[in-house]
């Protein structure tokens, strides 16, 4: 046996178990689910009839799914831009100060590394109606009217989204800061010596150079908010995505269909629809940013 062959065999041996894992726990299940999405697969019945696309039709025709998708779009379209803009601003401010940078950065990262379940309950506690809720007490002390927050269908989604943004900020700020540090300082100094104003430096040098990172974050955060589940589950009454389904996300809809109604076939089709949306959004973003950044 040649040496090369021997080493190739070693490689296959090393990779055997992992390949079993990736095929058995990732690809296999995915294909299995695609197949089962075409059946009336349910854990309540011993039936496995081929339905064709009936599940997809039923899901797309379900007004609650429509509502969940609209909510999901709102989480992503409002959440991702805000978190990116806010984090960029914070990163630029942080970059401008000399002392305490590390401490501030630590504080901003804290929500990101703590369990979302725990922080969701803390926020739910703060959002309570008077006299219990801290935020409402604060509003009261300032003479402002109380808000129902998570109990009002108009405010609930944004109240939950606020927590999502609060959590994700630490991540985005850290990435932006790292990106800013890779910008050559002499380039900025040269522009300043040439008499460029601070805002000019920002617009013409810093922001364009941060474009690839912004692009990366836009995709990551877009996906993150399209998949939102944990805060919605923990902050709505009885984990229902209420009031009146106003906070229900696509992921929660899938969870409820699969694991409280056990309509697995239908849930499988709903999750494939969500998957398709995530893919399309990602591809569109890639194309859009590709044009803008030209790299």
């Amino acid at each position: 046996m040649t040496l090369a062959k021997k080493r190739a065999i070693t490689a296959y041996v090393f990779l055997a178990l992992p390949l079993v894992f990736f095929i058995g726990v990732r690809f296999g299940p995915m294909l299995y689910m695609m197949g089962r999405s075409l059946t009336d697969w349910s854990l309540l019945r011993k039936s496995n009839q081929f339905l064709g696309l009936a599940n997809f039709a039923a899901v797309l025709g379900d007004p609650v799914f429509g509502k969940a998708m609209a909510n999901t779009a709102r989480y992503a379209l409002v959440g991702a831009p805000i978190v990116i803009a806010l984090s960029l601003a914070v990163a630029l401010l942080l970059n401008g100060i000399a002392r305490g940078k590390g401490l501030f950065r630590l504080i901003y990262v804290l929500p990101y590394i703590t369990p979302v379940v725990a922080v969701s309950w803390v926020w739910r506690w703060m959002y309570q109606s008077p006299p219990m809720g801290l935020i409402n007490r604060l509003l009261g002390a300032l003479g402002l009217p109380a808000h129902a927050f998570i109990n009002n269908p108009k405010e609930a989604l944004y109240s939950i989204l606020g927590v999502g943004i609060w959590v994700e900020m630490g991540y985005c700020v850290t990435i932006f800061l790292a990106g800013i540090q890779t910008i050559p300082q002499d380039c900025i100094e040269a522009a300043r010596i040439d008499g460029a104003s601070e805002s000019r430096v920002l617009r013409s040098i810093i922001l364009p150079l941060l474009m690839p990172i912004t692009f990366f974050l836009a995709i990551m955060e877009g996906i993150q908010f399209l998949r939102i589940f944990t805060p919605v589950y923990n902050m709505s009454s009885q984990a229902m995505g209420g009031p009146l389904d106003s906070t229900k996300s696509a992921a929660l809809y899938i969870y409820q269909t699969a694991f409280t109604k056990f309509e697995m076939g239908r849930a499988a089709s709903a999750s494939l629809i969500l998957f398709a949306v995530i893919m399309v959004v990602t591809l569109v973003q890639v194309r859009f940013f590709d044009k803008k950044t030209n790299y």
Binding site: F22, P29, M30, I223, I254, L274
Partner: peptide, 15 residues
């Protein structure tokens, strides 16, 4: 496999 979201895989995993 990084592209496949957990939300989707939990259904077959459960099965």
């Amino acid at each position: 496999t990084l592209m496949i979201p957990t939300e989707m895989l939990v259904i077959p995993w459960y099965a």
